[in-house]
Design a protein around this nucleic acid. Structure first.
Lengths: 345, 345
DNA sequence: TTGTAGGCGTTATCAT
DNA sequence: ATGATAACGCCTACAA
């Protein structure tokens, strides 16, 4: 493997000092254009690349943003399509501003001594900021990280700290919209399948469901609230349960598309047609939502937008912008497709 | 934001030299256990974290693995669920070995001068190895990167270089298995929807389809090969087309689950039932495959395994392992679910 | 306009 | 067993 071309080499070859080379390369004004050109040309020829490590050591800026997104057994976040799309948005946005993304993978980076806390891992790599995606906000390490003063942004999680910001969809009003949509179609027996109630989106979507139910004067029934976990299997199980109720619902609001898909499945297994016998509305608008059978009526989250907003927040805070909102709430949009219709009876 | 605790600080406070601190922390034998303990305790208290940048500068090892995975408009790889799961496997495996992942996002990292090539970006961050996920293998920059001698692993793409390795599923035999499964059920008119033929998996799955068709003495018909792009919409369109054929197929092998889901949709729109009127088998076994309606018969790729194999390859090559295979092909497994059945007639 | 030199935080090589 | 000291590659005053 060819050895690295250093700035010193460049200096030697172009017959000037390293200082001059550095200034030329970094576009300082006080360099004779002739020398600059010569240097640039040489750098080009030799395919010179500055060493980020060296640079960040002296400038105290790494131009790298850390990302914590768990992929373990318990928290299989990397499995939920939602997070990937958000990650894509983040990547795109920060990339345009000259930042790369460090996906924290190891608890003992560099095979160093002992497992590192979130904070240590972030410090270890001198990341300029950190994005937290779908972690447990109660985790002690998360709190410590967020309080340390490093620019942080939480996606779908409540965090608080001197340089922390939160980005999430307007889950409450989204859930309300879902219920209103069903109500407008004529449904009165509307059930819901919640997400994990340890998460903000889980809580808020349930909250929205309740608010709408109350506002619309739907009789509140405890048994119409089924507890899921955002994943398909729970949607299926809970729907099966709901359909066995003496007075079964004619419509279900599932707090995630994955669960909605599971719900469609359960309906089919119970011999019911969607939407004729049972209307279902999801949440997220995952990539497959328009393609499943029937196409899913759902609340679209602006996933790329969430990632982009997170990126903007970080970049702004890294740049030192003082007055930033602590919370950015993005609107969601009802997308009516084929899984909802007026009730049969 | 609290300032960084350096090794020098640690040395000062514990009354020894930085050299000793470094040795103590890194577990060298020649340190009195008493001093070591004192130092360790202090490091603990102060929550000392070594600076990766400084360390990598001198050791020439960053313990970071770079990942190139395009997310642009043309190559929306980050959108295909398959790649995420692979990424998850990679992350998990390299994480266990002390590596973190750098997701290249910026073409001008650090807002440096001019756009950087793949190779420059990799060098810039001094990554110890690079994973290439679903890129265009013909791209000139990719070739240069791979030839530079840096440990590289290509996932689902053919690359060649002094330290390059390829990991992919056994697409050919997977496709064959799909066709044989349909044949065994009694199908004789079996069509296929291909993936993008610019990609190895796209080519290989078509190859497998053809090989099996020939081996099984199925009459070859040009019009039974429909060209898709791995995504749902193409599956739908191409299926619609296939179903209009004078002698329409009774079964379809779609080279990706997303396309299979699109195919199911198209069948429904044509008033056909799956699997009664049309059998469909996919490829991938994406997370939703068991949950859609009907549950998808498909060929399971070991996505986590692919990521893990890629991680192993990189770690081994970074460690200097000389005799490595240039290609690792992982087996795929037929998963029979509800989208296939014997033909009606 | 350019060169010199100090320092960023580590590890590694010598001595001691 | 420990302490100096020289790198690693770069940026940035400060001098010239």
């Amino acid at each position: 493997m060819e050895e690295r071309v250093t700035i010193r080499e460049l200096a030697r070859l172009s017959g000037v000092s390293v200082g001059t080379v550095s200034r030329a390369l970094n576009g300082y004004a006080d360099v004779r254009s002739e020398t600059r050109e010569r240097i640039m040309r040489l750098a080009q020829e030799l395919d010179y690349t500055p060493a980020a490590a060296a640079r960040s050591l002296v400038t105290q800026r790494s131009h790298v943003i850390g990302v914590f997104m768990e992929t373990g057994e318990g928290h299989p976040d990397l499995q939920h399509p939602f997070f990937h799309e958000v990650l894509g948005g983040l990547k795109q946005r920060v990339g345009a501003q000259g930042f790369d993304l460090l996906l924290f993978a190891s608890e003992r980076p560099g095979n160093g001594y002992g497992p590192h806390s979130y904070l240590k891992r972030a410090r270890h790599h001198s990341v300029d900021g950190v994005a937290l995606i779908g972690l447990d906000q109660e985790h002690a390490e998360v709190r410590r990280l967020v309080r340390a003063g490093l620019p942080c942004v939480g996606i779908d999680m409540d965090i608080e700290g001197p340089a922390a910001e939160v980005v999430m969809s307007d889950n409450v009003s989204g859930a309300e919209t879902a219920v209103r949509h069903l109500h407008a179609l004529g449904h009165r027996r509307i059930a819901t399948i919640t997400g994990m109630l340890e998460s903000r989106p889980g809580i808020d979507r349930l909250r929205g469901y309740r608010a709408a139910a109350q506002a619309l004067n739907l009789a509140y029934r405890d048994e119409y609230v089924a507890y899921g976990d955002f994943y398909a299997e729970s949607g299926r199980e809970q729907t099966a349960r709901l359909l066995e109720l003496p007075e079964r619902p004619t419509a279900i609001f599932a707090a995630a598309d994955m669960m909605a898909i599971g719900a469609v499945r359960a309906a089919a297994e119970a011999g019911l047609r969607v939407p004729e016998d049972l209307s279902i509305v999801g949440f997220d608008d995952i990539q497959l939502a328009p393609h499943v059978n029937p196409p899913l009526t759902t609340l679209r989250q602006d996933k790329l937008g969430l990632g982009a907003a997170a990126g903007d927040a970080l970049v702004a805070r890294i740049a030192g912008d003082p007055d930033r909102p602590s919370l950015r709430r993005l609107p969601v949009e009802l997308v009516v497709r084929g899984s909802t219709a007026p009730p049969a009876e």
